[in-house]
């Protein structure tokens, strides 16, 4: 289905619109999510431009390099996002180390295993695993602190849940990513799963950003 892929691409406009529509001073975690959303918007916009007829290229167009860039920056921003919730110095240092390790892995993977025009299966799979673990650690930390009485009104609960579901859902797809690209007759378009989950994640971003702009006295 071509429509789902297009809807998935344009769905970034929802959280982007929320960023501009509800432009208010917010805390650091929400600022990081805003940066991620805007960065995704810019990258998606450039990707659309790149594959369109407007961008003239002498060689065959392959926008996979954008996906490499996106994966690296998304991983870095999400690690920084989860890092803001942990107060213990040693945890924050470990996450900083994780950030550096992930960045190094991405660059090494690019150089050795996955060229820039191929699907970054290894990097993406590691990112998925990493974000899933960080989301679970976020929940554990939330309970230990016991500062939030109503999770429904807590925007970061929505974000962590959305990220967990998205990366869990795309984990398998990313493992077999390159193989799937080669085999185009699976009976369905595997990337429909990704498209669907991407729309879901953008809706979660929109809800979380909208909630951030309201005074959540009862949530905390």
């Amino acid at each position: 289905m071509i429509y789902l892929a297009d809807i998935s691409t344009y769905s970034i406009l929802l959280p982007s619109g929320m960023v501009f529509f509800r432009w208010k001073r917010v805390d650091i975690p929400v600022t990081i999510i805003r940066i991620l959303v805007l960065f995704t918007l810019v990258l998606d916009a450039f990707s659309e431009y790149y594959i369109s007829e407007l961008y003239i290229s002498e060689t065959q167009k392959n926008n996979m390099f954008l996906f490499h860039i996106f994966t690296l920056l998304e991983g870095i921003l999400l690690i920084l996002y989860f890092r803001t919730f942990f107060q213990q110095k040693w945890v924050r240092n470990i996450l900083l180390t994780l950030l550096l390790a992930f960045s190094t892995l991405t660059i090494i993977s690019l150089k050795i295993w996955e060229p820039i025009d191929s699907y970054p299966s290894i990097t993406k799979s590691v990112e998925c695993l990493m974000i899933m673990i960080l989301s679970i650690l976020f929940f554990v930390n939330l309970f230990q602190q016991s500062t939030v009485s109503n999770l429904i009104q807590y925007n970061h609960f929505w974000l962590a849940s959305g990220l967990l579901l998205f990366f869990a859902g795309t984990f398998f797809m990313n493992i077999v990513g390159q193989l799937v690209l080669q085999k185009n007759n699976l009976g369905f378009n595997v990337y429909d799963i990704h498209s669907f989950l991407n729309i879901f994640l953008n809706i979660i971003y929109t809800i979380a950003l909208w909630m951030s702009s309201r005074r959540l006295i009862s949530a905390q």
Partner: peptide, 28 residues
């Protein structure tokens, strides 16, 4: 092989999503 791969992807993905939802609901 292609169809097997497709089945694995679908089942794996559904399994992971159900697991993730289970985790979220459990914590909630």
């Amino acid at each position: 092989q292609t169809l097997d791969l497709g089945t694995v992807v679908i089942l794996g993905t559904m399994g992971m999503i159900i697991l993730a939802m289970g985790v979220v609901v459990f914590f909630f």
